[in-house]
Nucleic acid binder design. Structure first.
Lengths: 154, 154
DNA sequence: GGGTAATAGGACCGGTTCAGTCCTGATTGG
DNA sequence: CCAATCAGGACTGAACCGGTCCTATTACCC
């Protein structure tokens, strides 16, 4: 199957949760609220901040907040932020030399229409859509008792 | 990015090439025609045969042939054959016990609309579409001199 | 001004997955 | 009966990824 990176999954959770909370939120705070380990939440938030999906405030009393509304964030943006450009490809881009079978790669351009279709599909779904597809029980978590999340996650 | 398995890429190449050739083709023959190593071609064909995308003939003078026309094979079918069901997911299915955070997984069902959109997109594109998006030079390879492919691929 | 709380941005390690190969058996034509 | 071919699975080496941690840097607050 098309494997989605776990980090992307976390990113969606964190962003949705962030929209439920008021003001700036620290990464330890979000970790407690989501049940995701703190270092991992921090990593995700740093990546999201680099793509301007969240804005960050450094220093004491700092933290993160959404830089746009959930309905203005297509899931394509989140995937692109964490996993890189959306493209179904087997060719490794890091190699610099391109495909090993230089210029004769029979794949050249073959997947383009597929990628285009996928990108279009992912751009039409926003985080607000994903938020709504949750079970109601998880839509408005009891923020007064974040520990309940921790316990349940074990 | 959404990584596509290399085998799936090979599968598309082999299927398109298969449609260009007459009669049943052996896997060594297709390996020579595509420049893909023979054991790998054999593995791909076995998998495709298990999904009925190609039909196989065992024994001497046996081989493979397409079981449907290229325009009747959505790329979704090829991906599903090689990579398994099309679903963007971070949850590991092999685990049997499902998500570790039993029943409280905040993801539950969240990606469903996304998967649906992707599946729809991939079902609307056939191998015939991908064949056409090739550079003309590679559309009708010189089958009389398959060695040219081998040499160029090195 | 100094201490504390928080983000920024890497480096790093271990586990998992995957591409690729090979081996043994089953089937069929000559 | 022999040779050619597919079927199916085991195995290995390498690449990738998740997760953690460490060291700056920045800003608030006393």
């Amino acid at each position: 199957m098309l494997r989605l990176s776990k980090l992307t999954d976390y990113a969606v959770v964190v962003l949705v949760r962030l929209s439920d909370m008021e003001g700036v939120q620290t990464s330890p705070g979000l970790a407690a609220a989501t049940g995701i380990p703190e270092p991992t939440v921090a990593k995700v938030l740093k990546t999201l901040a680099a793509s301007d999906l969240v804005s960050s405030q450094r220093g004491a009393r700092g933290g993160y907040r959404l830089s746009r509304n959930l309905s203005s964030i297509p899931v394509a943006d989140v995937i692109a932020s964490i996993d890189g450009p959306i493209a179904l490809t087997a060719c490794v881009e890091g190699s610099g030399s391109g495909c090993e079978s230089q210029g004769l790669c029979p794949m050249r351009g073959r997947w383009d229409p597929v990628n285009e279709a996928i990108h279009k599909a992912l751009s039409s779904i926003t985080l607000a859509d994903m938020q709504m597809s949750l079970l109601p029980a998880f839509r408005t978590p009891d923020l007064a008792h974040p520990a309940a999340f921790q316990a349940a996650a074990e």
